[in-house]
Design a protein around this nucleic acid. Structure first.
Lengths: 314, 314
DNA sequence: TGAAATAAATAACTCATTGTTATATCATCG
DNA sequence: CGATGATATAACAATGAGTTATTTATTTCA
């Protein structure tokens, strides 16, 4: 029945003392005010202004509206400016969830970029492996997930498809074989996976373990997994002690090397793609978009690869 | 940019958890909500809801709007209900101004009627002779003036025209000649004004004095005004003491008689019309309309005259 | 796994609202 | 009494905000 526009008009009349002045103050034409008042009076069923010749004055009912106009309009303006701040990146919160090994360089660098560009945007951060982070994204518990997919790995056994969401590729991460320095393959150019059918394997995160199984199956064997840990520093330690071999993404080796371990490409090559994942809706939230951009930029700085080259060329 | 309708929609979505439920709760169709949200998102420049498959959830910006919706909408509802109370005569204030001699019966009776019919309507009352009461009406200091006009009297010398306003006739009030009981005319049927050219006159209020002058001029003389007072009881007292004669409206004689005074019609007859005066705008204020009605009813009860008969027949 | 059910998006259309300009009316003031 | 300043009205255009019908997508359930 009564909306913000009506209150604005009544307030302007009350403040300015005439329809014409109210019109100029609101940027309207005079008849617009005249008609607006008439409509309001029709709706409320009572006169709101007294037209006394050349001047107008509010009736009691008009004064009631004018009195309420202030609080209502300033609350609306407050809401608008809060939303505008979010839209203008002068406010906003992004909840980021990333898998542990990305936390070392990529994510911190991206967070720093966001902070530098938009100091008032808050980015909170939690660790989580892809299945959890995607579930959190779906559940609305985070806004951006930094996840990875292994090339050619078909997910789908209860896990979230990355394809359900909107994802931007960040890095191409080559999967290498890690062997102890004294291992027969240590000096080889590349390793045939099938040569390692009888090796003891050390597996990383569940997803990586799945990838290992998938690759091994394709190479015609079932790997014997002697140890399992999500901590890649530990994986490298185990390998260094000669307790087994492991598949390790190149990205991890950049932050956590071990000089008693040698890594070499495998054949057929395998890579994982690190992606920033969000939803189509959240991508329209400016702070989220800014975070995605920062992640892309951070990835480019982290590792110039064919993929990121392609992205920069774009 | 954002109006009450938008806030209502966002709040409904937040409360109901889906567009469809929000639509039913607001009495809209589902696409209406869908489009409303889209418009809001276009205007604000950021996503307001996350569509997660079948369910929707508000984004941070959406939550900002939902948070403000409550206060804003309840303030608007409060304003609406206050105005509705005024429109529905469950509230309201009328400032009445009446000339003194109407205060005796007509006005009190009318006030009682309003109080009986609409107990929550406040009518405040002040005395004032027609020129002042009309000026007050014009100045917005009162809402209804009970005034009178002398038949055939042309006003206009700086005074307010009753015709400027909207007036409803209440009573036809005959002007009679008051003489002492022992006056030569005391037993006459009627008095020729011209027979009183040499009499001492006692005048009432300024307006009444003006009327006396006008009538006398028409009768061919200039009256000798010996006394002047606005208090008609005093006028009657002066007449009773034989200090002069006076023109007195019949209405006054009903409440303030004096048995040492005789009144008789004058020739040519003269009457004043008692009117309830307001403005076209104020007449659309329900409490004002109710007061006017009460005045008409009170007048009918006070003095059944040809005029009031005509009004009831209408 | 596939079909039914549920929910949101889209298309196409209608109608009311809310502006506009041009003009009339009306009160005030020199 | 005419000029002026203010509101009202008329006619019209654009937009907003609904509607129904239909499509698309996700969940659920057999």
């Amino acid at each position: 029945m009564i909306d913000a526009a009506g209150l604005r008009v009544i307030r302007a009349i009350s403040e300015e003392g005439s329809f014409t002045a109210a019109a100029t103050s609101l940027g309207y034409s005079q008849p617009a005010i005249s008609q607006m008042v008439r409509r309001l009076e029709e709706r409320t069923g009572t006169a709101l202004v007294e037209r006394l010749g050349r001047t107008v004055r509010l009736t009691q009912a008009g004064q009631v509206l004018a009195r309420h106009a202030g609080p209502v309009l300033s609350a609306i303006e407050a809401a608008e400016s809060e939303v505008a701040a979010i839209a203008g990146l002068r406010a906003g919160r992004v909840r980021l969830m990333a898998f542990p090994s990305s936390s070392s360089t990529l994510v911190p660098r991206a967070l720093a970029l966001v902070k530098e560009r938009f100091p008032d945007v808050e980015v909170s951060f939690a660790e989580g492996e892809p299945p959890e982070s995607l579930a959190a994204l779906r559940a609305g518990e985070c806004d951006v997930a930094v996840a990875f997919t292994y090339e050619g790995t078909d997910i789908g056994r209860g896990e979230e498809h990355v394809e359900t969401f909107l994802s931007r590729p960040l890095l191409e991460d080559e999967v290498r074989l890690a062997v102890p320095k004294n291992h027969p393959l240590a000096k080889a150019d590349k390793a045939q996976l099938s040569d390692l059918a009888d090796a003891q394997w050390i597996a990383g995160c569940p997803r990586c373990r799945g990838h290992l199984l998938s690759l091994a199956t394709r190479a015609g064997f079932t790997p014997h997994v002697a140890f399992e840990t999500e901590d890649y520093v530990a994986v490298l330690g185990l390998v260094a002690e000669g307790l087994g071999v492991a598949l390790i993404p190149d990205l991890i080796l950049r932050s956590a090397g071990n000089d008693r371990v040698v890594t070499l490409p495998i054949d057929p090559a395998s890579r994982r793609t690190v992606q920033a994942v969000t939803t189509a809706d959240l991508e329209r939230v400016p702070a989220v978009a800014a975070t995605l951009d920062a992640l892309v930029d951070a990835a480019r700085a982290t590792c110039p690869s064919p993929l990121t080259a392609a992205i920069s060329a774009r």
